[in-house]
């Protein structure tokens, strides 16, 4: 039972974080495509902005790993 709940928890941690990251990156990405079309020199800044929400899924993954691995 406990193992099952832990697995569900880990799944939620990764899955929900991924959904959040995806939503954020989708919007930033579409705005970024517009920005780069107008000002190609801002490519570096756009990569940074696009990469910012990734912290969420990374942390989600870390939490999931800890749920599953730390006994």
């Amino acid at each position: 039972m406990e193992v099952g709940l832990a697995a569900i928890g880990a799944g939620l941690a990764v899955g929900l974080a991924a959904v959040g990251t995806g939503l954020a990156q989708g919007r930033i990405g579409s705005a970024g495509a517009g920005v780069i079309a107008e000002k190609p020199e801002l490519l570096g800044t756009m990569i940074v902005l696009l990469a910012i929400p990734e912290t969420m899924i990374i942390l989600g993954f870390a939490v999931a790993a800890i749920i599953l691995l730390v006994k």
Partner: peptide, 15 residues
């Protein structure tokens, strides 16, 4: 703090 935790990606992406 989350800046530092962000380096977890070095492990996570690799895994």
């Amino acid at each position: 703090v989350s800046n530092i935790l962000s380096y977890l990606r070095l492990a996570a992406i690799g895994l």
